[in-house]
Simulated scan of single mutants.
Amino acid sequence: MAKYEMLIAASGKRGSALLPCVVVDEKGIKRAAVRAKAMARACYPEYEKFNVVKMKVISDE
Rank of each mutant, 00 (worst) to 15 (best):
V22Q: 06
L18N: 09
M55D: 01
A36S: 13
A10F: 11
S16L: 10
F50C: 06
R41F: 14
A38N: 11
G28A: 02
S59L: 02
E61P: 05
V57Q: 08
D60Y: 10
G12F: 02
E5D: 14
N51K: 07
L19C: 13
S16R: 15
L18H: 10
K30M: 15
V22I: 06
Y47F: 15
V53Q: 14
K49S: 15
S16Y: 12
V57M: 01
V24E: 10
C43H: 11
V23C: 01
Y47R: 10
F50L: 07
M55I: 03
M55K: 04
E61M: 04
K49E: 13
M6Q: 05
P20S: 14
A42Q: 02
A10Q: 12
N51Q: 03
C43N: 12
C43R: 06
Y44V: 01
M39G: 07
K37L: 11
E26Q: 02
D60A: 10
C43W: 12
V52E: 14
R35E: 13
E26V: 04
G28M: 10
G28L: 06
I8L: 08
I29C: 00
V24F: 12
Y47P: 12
E61Q: 01
V34R: 04
V22P: 03
F50V: 02
C43D: 14
L19Y: 15
M39H: 07
V53G: 08
A9T: 14
K49T: 15
L19P: 10
C21R: 00
K37H: 07
A42R: 02
G15M: 09
A38M: 11
E26S: 08
L7P: 02
